[in-house]
């Protein structure tokens, strides 16, 4: 019998085990990025910027030129590299603590300058690496180790819709929200990542893909329940779909 290989590891993904928890969707998100890099044939002209957070070791998994940035500063790092090396393709990969809390200034200004970079924003409504503290995207009434009774808007304000916030700016070209929590969402997520990179390559402007993701460990759920929670709780507050598309 002749064997035909129909599925393999993307070339731009390193052949190492990841450190992620069972049911975490970082692995899927990484794979989508690596697949697009392969598809576009840009591995050797791409640079990525890893954040501080669970995906701090992104550089171990994506085999392109990589930076490991200070917490929240990935868009500033990527902006400079892209200005100096305009023929490279640059992306940042950031979680909600990194991008929406400590790094809010950097993401807003990089977007506002229309930097020709692609930002992959992992929104799982919690701080993962530090052990489950409240994030700017934590939902109302959602429990976290620093809001043990649930997020109270009178104390902590409201969950931030970063994609919509950035879409108020003139410069960004492509802003979309997808999910990787269940297989049925992944096809659209893959298409969004590809469109984001293509937007950059076509020099149309800044591109941003928010991915609703899971964190079973810090949510205190089984992986299947976490995937359902994204669908039942997160998507109603963070609606999926394109918010701004290139002309």
């Amino acid at each position: 019998m002749k064997e035909t290989k129909i599925f393999e590891r993307p070339k731009s993904m390193s052949d190492v085990p990841t450190h992620y928890c069972p049911g975490c969707t970082h692995g899927i998100a990484h794979r989508l990025v690596a697949e697009v890099i392969d598809e576009l044939g840009i591995q050797k002209k791409t640079f990525g910027v890893a954040p501080v957070g669970c995906s701090v070791f992104l550089y171990n998994y994506i085999d392109t030129d990589m930076y490991e940035a200070a917490h929240g500063r990935a868009p500033a790092v990527a902006s400079a590299v892209k200005r100096i090396r305009p023929d490279m393709v640059g992306f940042t990969y950031q979680g909600d603590g990194d991008l929406a809390s400590i790094g809010m200034a950097e993401i807003v200004h990089a977007a506002n300058r229309g930097e020709l970079i692609t930002v992959i924003f992992i929104n799982n409504a919690i701080y993962g690496m530090t052990g489950g503290q409240m994030a700017p995207t934590t939902l109302l009434q959602q429990k976290a180790t620093t809001c043990p009774l649930g997020r109270d808007p009178g104390v902590n304000g409201y969950p931030m819709r970063v994609a919509e916030l950035l879409a108020t700016l003139a410069a960004p070209a492509y802003i979309t929200r997808v999910s990787v929590a269940k297989p049925k969402y992944v096809g659209k997520a893959a298409a969004a990542v590809k469109r984001a990179f293509q937007t950059q390559i076509d020099r149309k402007g800044f591109s941003f893909v928010e991915m609703l993701s899971t964190c079973p460990t810090n949510w205190g759920m089984r992986p299947a329940d976490a995937a359902n929670w994204v669908e039942e709780k997160m998507i109603p507050y963070y609606p999926l779909g394109d918010i701004k598309v290139p002309e």
Binding site: Y67, A70, R73, A76, V77, A80
Partner: peptide, 26 residues
């Protein structure tokens, strides 16, 4: 060359981090 005004000193030095990584004189 390129001059870029950063949004803060924090962003500026992280731009230097990125730029210096290209080996160019920043």
């Amino acid at each position: 060359g390129v001059y870029l005004q950063a949004e803060s000193e924090v962003a500026a030095i992280n731009m230097i981090f990125g730029g210096a990584g290209t080996g160019e004189r920043v």
